[in-house]
Design a protein around this nucleic acid. Structure first.
Lengths: 236, 236
DNA sequence: CGTGACCTTGAGTAGCCTCAAGAACTGTGG
DNA sequence: CCACAGTTCTTGAGGCTACTCAAGGTCACG
């Protein structure tokens, strides 16, 4: 758990992350709050379900998955987080984390001590706004996943997933067409409510149909409109 | 839209609702914030997706469903809300509601003007805590639904749903075994990612197996342990 | 170059969906 | 209070999607 110095005010993610909407002066106050980083190796856990809650984490670099455990031992991936996204919001409710956060590549996170975040957000209205919006956005995102899991078929689910990933990567300055999946077929399947074989078959189908070029974890979007059509005009 | 006088400090839901954890003095401040109620007739909408966001709502009496619309027109029920639960949290993110809230019986809600809630929660630490916990709890709840939709079979889903309803009703002083469903088979199905026929068949199956007594919308839990076993020891 | 993890593909099957018909209930007007 | 229309619920038959089980291929890494 190496700790590094950090400053939100000079972070190139400040337009995506917690500081969104803050003025320069307020940003300086945020710098006093978010003062350390933490490294997590690929495969390592940022936190586990049951761990006491002390801080939220903002992904600085790298890629995470969060997964909840069900009663019978089987888990489910509830989300994939990339740079600028917050981890740990679920823990506020019970002062303990309710899911595992696992790094899918070597990563760095900014540590946001929660008590101090609450204190500062009582002083800085814009920070309060930003934080509430982030929590609310997480709720909206979850509703979108519920819609996906509850009413889409396999092809729609995977198309939605790929379009969502490319959109988020594009917002971070990456190519909107070429991406390298950081997660296994099984993890994608868990997130989308499918078995890994179904994910694999559906990738192959998209490949055959010229929607995607798929080579293991390297994916290139060849026909974005075709993918969007799949999502919007669901199978009969 | 009839408006009535109301006071959190004298509300018998204060242990379930926003005021959870507040001291007497702070409760009085909350009373100045939550000063009006609104009636919604069965079938009526508290708000629609796209409506500008101004207030959160706490269910005072009655029963609601929230549903999001998907691109292709089909909707999905994202939750059922009963007394003491908050509606509208999703709207904070974009200053517009992202789902419809429909009353499933004649209902009353307390109106919580959002700007004033933010202002007061900068003053009253316990209110800030309570509000953040409520948002976080919604995120945890959504993760539970994602787990249900992503990895459970029909029987597990319905058993989970019934157990969840009875638990919440019990917390409100109702019988943990007898309940009257406020929603149709189709709405249950939409929430659980099943077709209404499957919901109906699964109810019939539970009835045959002696787990439930089902007569249209009247349900009596005969074997709670049996339901729990279904949830924890999934099929095969 | 061997080992383990991950991915692809095939064959057969189970669970849920679709389509359809009829029953039970709700509420509305005579 | 009853008849009727509309909605909701139940049940059956058949079909399709995604799952299970299985085998072999690819890739990363020591």
């Amino acid at each position: 758990m190496r700790e590094l110095q950090v400053a939100c005010s000079s972070c190139n993610l400040r337009e995506l992350c917690l500081p969104l909407g803050l003025q320069r002066a307020d940003m300086d106050k945020l710098d006093t709050l978010v003062s350390t980083r933490r490294r997590v190796r690929r495969g390592g856990a940022l936190f586990h379900a049951g761990d006491p809650f002390a801080a939220l984490y903002a992904v600085r670099t790298g890629f995470f998955k969060t997964c909840v455990a069900s009663e019978d031992g089987a888990g489910q991936v509830t989300g994939f987080q990339m740079a600028g996204e917050l981890l740990g919001l679920d823990a506020i409710s019970h002062d303990r984390h309710t899911c595992d956060a696992i790094a899918l590549e070597d990563s760095q996170v900014c540590v946001i001590p929660y008590e101090r975040l609450e204190a500062l957000s009582r002083e800085v209205v814009e920070l309060q706004h930003a934080f509430h919006k982030i929590m609310s956005r997480e709720i909206v995102r979850d509703h979108g996943v519920m819609l996906l899991l509850g009413s889409m078929r396999a092809e729609e689910r995977l198309a939605t997933f790929i379009l969502n990933l490319t959109r988020r990567l594009q917002a971070r300055g990456f190519s909107p067409t070429a991406l390298v999946l950081r997660m296994t077929r099984e993890e994608i399947g868990s997130y989308l409510g499918l078995k890994l074989e179904t994910v694999s078959r559906t990738f192959s189908k998209f490949h055959e149909e010229g929607l995607l070029q798929v080579k293991q974890r390297e994916v290139r979007v060849l026909d974005e409109e075709g993918l969007k059509r799949l999502v919007n005009a669901p199978g009969v």
